[in-house]
Design a protein around this nucleic acid. Structure first.
Lengths: 188, 188, 188, 188
DNA sequence: GATGAATGAGTTTTCATTCAT
DNA sequence: TATGAATGAAAACTCATTCAT
């Protein structure tokens, strides 16, 4: 039951956004009563938190295995990572909603989660870049962590553009060009 | 008077976001009546549209002169463009909100404006890249317009990250690294 | 100028009704400013009063001559009167608006005018019926004034039905049947 | 609860009219919250529609039995019908408002209901007149349906006059005279 | 666990009216 | 005379939340 509600909430939030989605909308989508939403989640904010939390769990679970492929060329791994990331987030649209600064003000919980994930990503990318440097596949003057942060930021930044309704397929091909530029930009 | 209202609206929208800002809030900030907002702008949507339109006018006004510097290295111009763009949009926080998927879904009234500006940017960048190719400063296999679109998308995508309250200064230095990667990524 | 405003007001009130018509609507229709409406008429209520007053003036002016045709058969005069009345009121649509009980509560001025006109009509019809009785054209057991009042009330009652947009032409033919029934109903 | 709201709405609408009645007024009368009005009826328009619908249901329920009295003289039945109709509608003041031209113009949501009832009435009267013709009680040259329509229109038209606050009792006696005229007017 | 009903605070919007120019 | 701007009170409506059953 909880799952059914969570799914309906995820779908509806991603379709209309946090503010334009009413508890009524979600209850209707789930074919359940508004009351049950409150029974299971307590409030609209907590329901949204649960939705986002679920999506982020999927994100990290999907990305973890990629960084274990230490045998591949680091540029290759980076490419795989970028593609996988886009793919997973395509199915985690509510995470997007939290990107807005003003949203944070009242949602420190989400802020914390997001910071954690970002740090984890930066760390993984840093490791990858270091390996690439050691294997002399890459050329990165200066602080590696900064490059890692730039890359993560860049990927995070692309997200909104990618999830505009129906734009994903059209933009996917552009993504190849972007990967190409970056790969070349960091190569030795 | 209209300007005073517009300014108050811009400030308040950017602080709380479109949904969390009430006409009441704006009227209070402007020290004017709610009625005058409706007299001048007709509705909340149209007021927001006016705010965003104002911000984007500033963007194009600031960027135009840069593309006229045809004597510089194309990579140099691109760099100037990217820096100026970030700087201007730093003060165009409401434009940001319109990029969010959930906003996009429900408020199509800004589509025209946004599409126009994006197209203008892509065209300018395309020209620039073409010049760079002719001067043999750049190397870009495939369709140039796609590269231009990728670059604009990338810059648009970075915006949310850059305008997190108070984060601009910290991220500014990262931007240099990004520019460096890209510049190298498209160089011959 | 006053006349131009009055005409625009009459048109707009009759189209949307008193409450659904805003001063804005009227000003727009007249291509004048709202301010001028207040300059000339003082308030929405007073403007409406002026409109109705104008219409009623036309009504009585148009009906007066009919009652002077003492040479005709009284049933013939009644028929002429009924037809003329419908025709004139077709062009006095705002008078309709005042028919509603709740409308009166705050508009005693209109109440008075209407009562006066009704009394005048009843008196005219009474005279006519009396003549008809004397000429032995009619048969009316009981108080003649009551018959006159019934006839006026009946005609007043038909008004709303007749002024439904576009219904006038369709209903006009029915009116003939009604006149026939009544004429026969009061004939000797 | 719904019924309590409906009753309060009916009372208040009939007292002040549709426009002068606010949802606040109704909620106060019912000693309930505005929210509950919207929970049960969705909007002011739909609430009003429900009120009128209720009134018209009473009308048809009261009139049905009368048309079954086929043993009586058709003029007698017509008389009963007219009297009953007036009596019932005396307590259906909100239906009245919907007959005003200006109301009609903007609120088409009641069209269906009204048209249905009117058609039902015309049909019943038509049948009655036909029976009267066959029994040679009546004399009606031309299309019978038109006579039926005229009669219904006439009765509908009288309604506003009859329901002027407190005027019913005075006018009731006039109604007898009207019935007499009509009865004679259609008799053989 | 689940629900339908109810609520009230807050939001957008309307509009008659005023007034300086 | 005429107007554009401004106002504020009141209106319709939304919706997260509560709660008895």
């Amino acid at each position: 039951m909880r799952d059914k509600l969570l799914e309906a909430a995820g779908f509806t939030f991603s379709k209309f956004g946090y503010y334009k989605t009413s508890m009524e909308d979600i209850a209707e989508k789930a074919q359940k009563s508004k009351g049950s939403l409150y029974y299971h989640f307590g409030s609209k904010e907590l329901l949204f938190e649960a939705v986002v939390f679920e999506e982020l769990k999927r994100l990290t679970n999907a990305l973890k295995p990629i960084f274990d492929k230490t045998d591949l060329d680091s540029r290759q791994v980076l490419k795989l990572y970028m593609l996988k990331r886009m793919e997973v987030l395509r199915n985690a649209p509510n995470y997007q909603e939290t990107l807005r600064p003003s949203f944070y003000e009242h949602y420190t919980f989400l802020d914390q989660i997001k910071t954690q994930i970002t740090e984890w990503e930066v760390m993984q990318i840093s490791k990858l870049l270091k390996q690439g440097l050691m294997k002399e596949e890459l050329e990165l003057p200066g602080d590696i962590t900064v490059y890692a942060q730039v890359l993560v930021m860049l990927l995070q930044g692309l997200e909104p553009n990618f999830y505009l309704k129906g734009e994903y397929d059209r933009l996917e091909s552009y993504f190849d060009n972007l990967i190409q530029i970056i790969t070349k930009g960091i190569s030795k």
